[in-house]
Structures are given as C-alpha cells and as structure tokens.
C-alpha cells in the first residue's frame, strides 16, 4: 500500500455565506490518480485550493507528508480560463517559472535550467514552441505549457483544475494519456472535471463532491445511478459495456442508433446512444442490454 502524502481530516471551508465544504476526510496516496467530480459550485476548486495550501480550512486539519526529508513538492495547473493570455510572456518563460520558488536569486535562468525546460517541452511534444507568446497557442498546447511548468518543479503531487475543459475530444484524449504516463512515472495526480465518461475510462479513483464527500472509490464503485442522483440531483443512466462504463442523461436524449421505424414513436435514447427499454417488432435484428437507471 502506498503511503499517504496528503490527508484532509474533518476539513470545512466557508467564504462567509454558509459552508462550501463540510467535514471532508480525504487521503491522497503516493502515486495515486484521483478525479474529483461534482456539479458546478460543489466545492471542487475550493477542495483543490485547500490541497494546494492557497486556502486555509475553517475547521479540520490538512497534513502534507513527503517520502523523504524534503517537504511535499506540489505543482498546480490552473484552469485555462483563469489565465491572462495577453500577459507578456513566452512559453519558455512560463515553463521556467516552475523553478521560481527554488530560491535562486538571479533573475535569469541558468543554462542547466533552460536545458531542463527545453527537455520537458520536448517530452510533451511542444519543444519547437518555446519562444512563442502564450496567446498564439492552441488549447492543447496551452495546457501542455502549464503541465511543463509543473513538471519542471519535479512534483510529488500534480493538481489540475479542469484540464480537459474547453478542448476538443482529441486533445482531451492526449492530455489524459499524458497524465497517465506521468502517473506511471510516480507522480500522484488529482484533477477536477465535469466529463464523467472520460474519468470512467481514464482515472482509477474518483471522489464525488457536493459540499461534502458523497462517494469515493473506483469508477465501478462510484458511477452508479444512485450515487450520481445523490451527487447531481438528476437521473442518470449508467451502462457497463464490456468493462467500459458509459454515463448519460436519462432525460432529453434524442440520439437513437437504430432505424427509427423499428421502434415505438417518441422513444428517448441516452446521449451516448444507449436506448432505454422500449418495444419493437419480433423481427428486429438486435437485442438491448439492460440500461441501469436506478429508478
């Protein structure tokens, strides 16, 4: 069992108008990979900021423990929306900021530091962009730039706030694949996201937050209609198809992979194409798997 590197015990937090988080107990283990999910305003970003240390809990304790004698090394990748993209700074300058807290007093980077920065950028596949202004990057490149800044810090724990928001499906896949690789190299990762299907496919441990920890465990344990209804206050359909978990809205879905004339009119289907129980003729060329709705 990997030892805990970050422990929250009975943590509560408020911005002044009622508690945003109440009585949170959470353990992040060395080399773990955690996805924090929950509705908007559930306290996901607040939870990350408590983990980072940029917010202090109103109640409870947060312990950060490193494996060796040094303090736990944290690195943060912010939401892209929070960045001022007109700030006069290049990709290389952003990446070199990863060592800004290391106590070097000279304003310019050493040759060694610059080589390391170039190495990390090459590793992430954006080595040729080092001199470019950050405004002139795609969403995926911007995300990789901030991940490169985090990696230059050689973190024990990497915290990412919605790294897959605002990017296309291909970029989202690339980013999650990259995070997997980094996790395999031993870096513990905690990220927030709204994309339940992506976390189900890529992230081994989920933490469901809605002002408190609603559930915690593997996607199989956590992504159930009952937990999701408790979390989002809405009915969700969950399908486990050959080990792949798919989550969709139970209402308002219109996509039907079948020929429409095979089915009774007005039959709703899930967003990912799974069709809830419905009837069709005996000569239909398919059968339906059970879609679990929790109703």
């Amino acid at each position: 069992m990997h030892h805990p590197i970050l422990e929250l015990r009975g943590v509560s937090f408020t911005y002044g108008n009622g508690a945003v988080l109440r009585d949170v107990d959470l353990t992040v283990r060395e080399g773990g990979f955690y996805g924090v999910v929950g509705p908007s305003g559930a306290g996901k970003t607040t939870l990350l900021r408590l983990m980072e240390g940029s917010l202090e809990p109103a109640a409870g304790t947060i312990e950060r423990r490193a494996h060796g004698p040094d303090r736990l090394r944290l690195a943060v990748v912010p939401q892209l929306e929070a960045i001022d993209w007109n700030f006069p700074i290049t990709v290389e300058e952003v990446v070199l900021l990863g060592t800004a807290g290391d106590g070097r007093r000279l304003p310019w980077a050493s040759r060694d530091m610059r080589e390391k920065a170039r190495g990390v950028l090459d590793q992430l596949g954006i080595g040729e962009l080092f001199g470019r202004h950050i405004r002139n990057l795609s969403g995926g490149q911007q995300q990789r730039t901030f991940i490169a800044r985090a990696l230059l810090r050689r973190p024990d724990l990497l915290i990412l706030d919605e790294p897959t928001s605002g990017v296309d499906v291909g970029t989202r896949h690339d980013i999650l694949h990259l995070l997997h690789e980094l996790n395999h190299e031993g870096i513990a990762i905690v990220l927030t996201t709204h994309d339940l299907n992506a976390v189900a496919a890529h992230i081994p441990m989920l933490v469901c937050v809605n002002g408190r920890i609603v559930a915690e465990g593997t996607p199989e344990q956590v992504l159930t209609p009952i937990v999701l209804r408790d979390l989002y206050g809405a009915e969700m359909i969950v399908v486990n198809r050959e080990g792949m978990i798919l989550v969709g809205d139970a209402f308002g879905a219109t996509v039907d992979p079948h020929e429409r004339d095979e089915h009774a009119s007005g039959t709703p289907a899930a967003h990912f194409g799974q069709v809830p129980a419905h009837e069709h003729g005996a000569d239909a060329d398919h059968v339906h798997e059970e879609a679990e709705t929790g109703r």
Binding site: R49, L97, T99, A100, G101
Partner: peptide, 21 residues
C-alpha cells in the same frame, strides 16, 4: 533579486503559493 517570484505572482497569483511563493 525577486524577479522570478514577482513575475510568477503577477502572472498567476492563484498558483503562486503552491510553488513556494
């Protein structure tokens, strides 16, 4: 003497504390 800390805190103040600034 504080060039990099000031740059970090000016550019991305939200993340600064996590990086030891």
């Amino acid at each position: 003497l504080r060039y990099r800390e000031l740059l970090f805190a000016t550019f991305d103040p939200e993340a600064a504390d996590a990086y030891g600034i």
